[in-house]
Structures are given as structure tokens and as C-alpha cells.
């Protein structure tokens, strides 16, 4: 018993390490979340399919125009595989998804993966710009507001955030267009310059749309962060400890309260991604950006079920994965979760 071979010992160590890794709370959390996400994603595809199939008027009719004969329509439907029962098509589509084949667009015949590959980077760049810009403004404003609750900065931030939460993004986008493209023509109102044509032009074409998405976002983040900071400064004992050490107010705010608020802010950013996707549909439409939102709207209007389904699934996956990453980052960053609760 006591003389085990070295190889066996190593093996046991490996399996022990694996077992410990599997028992680690963050990994188990991720596993649980993944297991819960799969039925949700499946439900999303089913719902999309149902919604798309109660659409009156077929895609073939749409493609051929109003003066097509019933024969022509039927022929095209057969070509596009639209004449089979809905559940058969759903099953085939689902099989395709599992094997990584999202099918071809009904309208253009292009593979959906190619379309997504072209359109997605634009939207991702837009959303990332919006998030980064809004966070860059949120953090200093919320800190200044929380430094003196009910002070002048705080009141201003409250008014600003309430305004931002009440203004529809398309309204704000159009106001931006009126101000910066019509009254003072300094920025392009529509169009997109790809990154390959130069960074400066690319960023210039993204400034207005990113602000249009980012401003309400900034207001939302600021409202949350300010509230969380004020609550901590009022209620948390470790804030009192820090003050009792003689630490200055800014340092207490940043090193103690903000450090703890960061986790909450991260969650908010992750959870809010779903709403952001809705915003990109409109904003891309207004600024004529060739992103995924524009493609989605086009596909909905063309009754291009294959594309709509693929994009909706993609967006749902993005939302679910964003939530998952939020949890994961949380687990990596928050020591309480990182090491598990060892003591009482």
C-alpha cells in the first residue's frame, strides 16, 4: 500500500487536482449556468420559429413580387424547401445549427454565416465604443457625485441621468444629427468607413452613433454607480474603518467603496447587453451602418426567415454568454468567490 509506483502517484495527483478543479465553486457555477442556458436558447429558437411561421404571406411571394403566378410561387417554394411542414423544416434547421450550418439566405442565397461574418464586426465595434465611452464618463461623474451626496455635482448628475433615461435613443440620435450634421456640419450624418480605410475615418463615422447609444447607457450606469457608492459610504462598516484610520475621503471612496461597487457595475454592464442590441437595430438604421441590426431589420421586412432565425439565435447566445462571462469575471475578480467561503 505504502509503496505505490511514481506513475500511479502522479496519476492520482492529477485526478485529485481535477477533482478539486471540478469542485471549485466558480467552475460549478459556470456549469450550472450553462446547463440552465441551453433550454433558454432552445426556447428562443422555437419561439422565433413559431413567430416567423405565423407570418402571413410567404417569402417566395415577397421575392417574386405581387404579379407572380401561383405556379411560379409554388415552384420557388419547392426550390427553397418552403413547401415542407413547419416542424420538418425546424428539425432540419436545428440539425444544421448543431453542426454549424446556419443555411442560406432566402433572399440572396448567400450562406448566413458569411452575412453574419460581414455584418457582426461593425455592430461589435459600435457597441464596444459606446460602452467604453460611457464608462469613461460614468466613473468620474459618479465618484464626484457620491463624494458629496445632494451636492451640486450630485444633483446635476441626477438630473442628467433622469433626462438620459427618458430620452429615446432614436430621438437623441436625430437631435445629434440635427446639431452636428445639419446646424454645424462637422461630422458625417450617415455612412460607415471600414477600419481598413483608416482608423480616423472609421472613428469619425462611429462618433455620432456611439454617442447616441452611449449617452442613455452612461446615464444608466451613472445612476447605478452613484447609488451604490452612496449606499456604501453611508452603510458599510469597512468604510467607517477606513475613515477611522484617518484615510482621506477621496481615498475611502475610490479604494474602498468603488472597489466594491465595481462588481455591481460589471454585472449591470453585462446584463444590459440585451437592451443594447435592440438599440443597435435603430441606430444602425438611422446612421446607415451596415451592422447586424440593419441586416436583421432587412431580413424581417423580406420575410427571410433563415437569416432572422440565425441572427436572433446569435443575439440570444450573445446575451447568455455575456451573462456567463459576467459571472465568470465576478468569480475571478471577487476574492470572496475566488477562494470560496472557508470560514463561518
Amino acid at each position: 500500500m505504502s509503496t505505490s509506483t511514481p506513475a500511479l502517484g502522479a496519476d492520482r495527483r492529477v485526478s485529485h487536482g481535477l477533482a478539486r478543479a471540478l469542485r471549485s465553486p466558480s467552475l460549478r457555477l459556470i456549469g450550472r449556468r450553462l446547463a440552465a442556458a441551453i433550454p433558454v436558447l432552445w426556447g428562443v429558437t422555437l419561439l422565433t420559429f413559431l413567430v416567423l411561421n405565423i407570418m402571413p404571406g410567404s417569402a417566395a411571394q415577397q421575392l417574386l413580387g405581387a404579379d407572380a403566378t401561383p405556379e411560379q410561387v409554388r415552384q420557388l417554394e419547392a426550390e427553397l424547401n418552403l413547401d415542407q411542414p413547419a416542424w420538418v423544416r425546424y428539425w432540419e434547421w436545428l440539425q444544421g445549427v448543431v453542426t454549424g450550418d446556419l443555411g442560406n439566405s432566402i433572399a440572396s442565397g448567400q450562406p448566413v454565416t458569411t452575412i453574419i461574418g460581414q455584418r457582426l464586426p461593425v455592430s461589435v465595434e459600435l457597441v464596444l465604443c459606446a460602452i467604453i465611452v460611457s464608462l469613461a464618463f460614468t466613473v468620474p461623474l459618479a465618484l464626484m457625485a457620491a463624494r458629496r451626496p445632494n451636492g451640486i455635482v450630485d444633483r446635476l448628475s441626477m438630473v442628467l441621468s433622469m433626462t438620459g433615461l427618458s430620452i429615446a435613443n432614436y430621438v437623441f440620435a436625430l437631435v445629434l444629427v440635427v446639431v452636428f450634421a445639419v446646424i454645424f456640419p462637422v461630422l458625417p450624418a450617415i455612412g460607415f468607413v471600414p477600419l481598413s480605410d483608416g482608423l480616423l475615418g472609421n472613428l469619425r463615422s462611429l462618433i455620432l452613433p456611439a454617442i447616441a447609444i452611449g449617452f442613455p447607457l452612461f446615464c444608466f450606469y451613472t445612476r447605478f454607480l452613484r447609488g451604490d457608492l452612496v449606499e456604501q459610504m453611508r452603510g458599510e462598516d469597512y468604510v467607517v474603518t477606513a475613515k477611522a484610520k484617518g484615510v482621506g475621503p477621496w481615498r475611502v471612496l475610490i479604494r474602498h467603496a468603488f472597489r466594491n461597487s465595481l462588481f455591481g457595475l460589471l454585472t449591470i454592464v453585462g446584463l444590459n447587453l440585451g437592451t443594447l442590441i435592440g438599440a443597435t437595430v435603430i441606430i444602425e438604421q438611422i446612421f446607415a451602418l451596415p451592422g447586424i441590426g440593419q441586416e436583421l431589420l432587412q431580413a424581417i421586412n423580406n420575410r427571410d426567415a433563415v437569416v432572422v432565425q440565425a441572427i436572433v439565435l446569435l443575439l440570444a447566445v450573445v446575451v447568455v454568454v455575456a451573462n456567463l462571462i459576467t459571472d465568470l469575471l465576478y468569480a475571478v475578480l471577487d476574492p470572496r468567490i475566488r477562494y470560496g467561503q472557508r470560514s463561518a
Partner: peptide
Amino acid sequence: FQDPTRSLNPT
């Protein structure tokens, strides 16, 4: 302070 659990910054 009274409650060392809450009085230390958890992060």
C-alpha cells in the same frame, strides 16, 4: 469595532 466581518473590506 464590534463586527470584524463587516468592518474589514472584503475585497
